[in-house]
């Protein structure tokens, strides 16, 4: 199990950041991903693999309408 924005999410082996965002349908372009306190650069979303127990923040920088 992993945490995504404080909520439980099932983990599986080889799950990448890019795959996770796609599964969550997080399509907004201004998004920051932080794993266990460390920011993942956008160009590393595909190659960054999520470990079981990771705490992930997927912060959408959108404050309006």
């Amino acid at each position: 199990m992993i945490k995504v924005n404080g909520r439980d999410y099932p983990w599986r082996a080889e799950l990448s950041v890019k795959q996770l965002l796609a599964e969550m349908n997080f399509t907004f372009p201004l998004i920051i991903v932080v794993i266990n306190g460390k920011t993942v650069p956008k160009d590393e979303f595909t190659c960054t693999v999520i470990e079981n127990g990771d705490d992930i923040q997927a912060i959408h920088l959108i404050c309006g309408g």
Partner: peptide, 17 residues
């Protein structure tokens, strides 16, 4: 919505629990 728009901070990001 020009006064406050905090849906993503709240619902998606869970930054203001």
């Amino acid at each position: 919505h020009d006064e406050a728009w905090v849906i993503f901070m709240d619902m998606v990001n869970n930054q203001i629990p």
